[in-house]
């Protein structure tokens, strides 16, 4: 987690914005973005410490093709790219279902950033293992009762 905090601190505002625009693109891959999904985006805005002056820019999401090209241009290295997918796949896995359109976007982003499919699967597994761990903890520690 220290690593990831450091990564966020390292990120320039344009990188944070492209992250956010990608998350929104993923969320609305099924056609629209609802208010609950916006709240999830708000979580990222908060943790990336993005100030309101950039909100308009975040909302101005380019066409997917342009966005993917920008990802390649703005994300500076593999570490950042892997972190990007960890964040992206976390959002994708919040619901129990993965939509076909969401997966298409993840696949296209992976291709744009030259991240291997195997690595995507590993990151996804990592997130799901944590999800399982948290659910187990909830039961064992009786947080659900």
């Amino acid at each position: 987690m220290i690593q990831e905090n450091r990564l966020i601190q390292e990120m320039e505002i344009k990188e944070k914005i492209i992250f956010l625009q990608s998350f929104i693109t993923l969320i609305r891959a099924d056609g629209k973005i609802d208010k609950d999904e916006k709240e999830l985006i708000a979580e990222f805005i908060k943790s990336y410490r993005i100030t309101p002056q950039y909100f308009a820019e975040i909302k101005n999401i380019p066409h997917q093709k342009t966005l993917l090209a920008s990802l390649k241009e703005i994300i500076p290295n593999r570490h950042h790219a892997l972190f990007f997918f960890k964040e992206l796949l976390t959002i994708a896995n919040i619901d129990d279902e993965l939509a076909h359109e969401e997966i298409l976007f993840i696949e296209a982003a992976a291709e744009a950033l030259h991240i291997e499919k195997e690595k995507i699967l590993q990151i996804n597994e990592l997130i799901l293992e944590k999800k399982i761990w948290l659910a187990k903890a909830e039961k064992i520690m009786e947080y659900d009762s």
Partner: peptide
């Protein structure tokens, strides 16, 4: 990739 990701999620 889609099948694999979906299988992971289902598991």
């Amino acid at each position: 990739l889609e099948d694999k990701l979906k299988q992971q999620a289902q598991n």
